[in-house]
C-alpha cells in the first residue's frame, strides 16, 4: 500500500483528507503511483502532470524520505520505504508567494 500526501488544493479537488492510500501493481515508480492516483481520482488528471505529455507541472515537486525526487525519470523505482508504506510519497506545490 503506497501512502501519498497531496497539497491542500488537490485534496479539495479530490475531496479527501489526510493521506491517500493506493494499491500499485508491479514496480513502484513515480509514474506508476501517479497512474494509480489518477485512476482513483480522475479529477486530478492534469493537475500534477500535463494531460498530454504527462510531464510534471513546473511548480509541483515530488519528495520522499527527505529527498527531492522531482527530477528523477518517471520510471525510476521509488525508495523501498515508500514501496513498503513506511514513508509517504509527497506531492508538494513549490514554494512561492501569492
Amino acid at each position: 500500500m503506497i501512502r501519498l500526501v497531496l497539497p491542500t488544493h488537490l485534496k479539495t479537488l479530490a475531496n479527501v483528507s489526510g493521506e491517500v492510500r493506493l494499491d500499485v501493481s508491479g514496480t513502484v515508480t513515480q509514474a506508476a503511483v501517479l497512474d494509480a492516483l489518477e485512476a482513483a481520482y480522475p479529477m486530478l488528471q492534469g493537475t500534477i502532470r500535463d494531460h498530454v505529455t504527462l510531464k510534471r507541472r513546473a511548480f509541483v515537486r515530488f519528495y520522499a524520505c527527505e529527498q527531492d525526487l522531482s527530477h528523477e525519470p518517471p520510471d525510476t523505482p521509488l525508495p523501498d520505504d515508500v514501496v513498503k508504506g513506511k514513508e509517504p510519497f509527497l506531492v508538494v506545490g513549490a514554494m512561492a508567494g501569492g
Binding site: Q45, G46, V52, R57, G93
Partner: peptide, 27 residues
C-alpha cells in the same frame, strides 16, 4: 486555474450554489 496545478473547469446547475468539476483536457 493555478500556476501550480493547471486548469480546472467547474460547472453549476443551480446558479452557483453547488459546483462539479468537469473536463479540463484542452489538447
Amino acid at each position: 486555474t493555478s500556476g501550480w496545478f493547471g486548469q480546472v473547469i467547474q460547472r453549476s446547475n443551480d446558479g452557483g450554489k453547488t459546483w462539479e468539476q468537469v473536463g479540463s483536457k484542452f489538447e
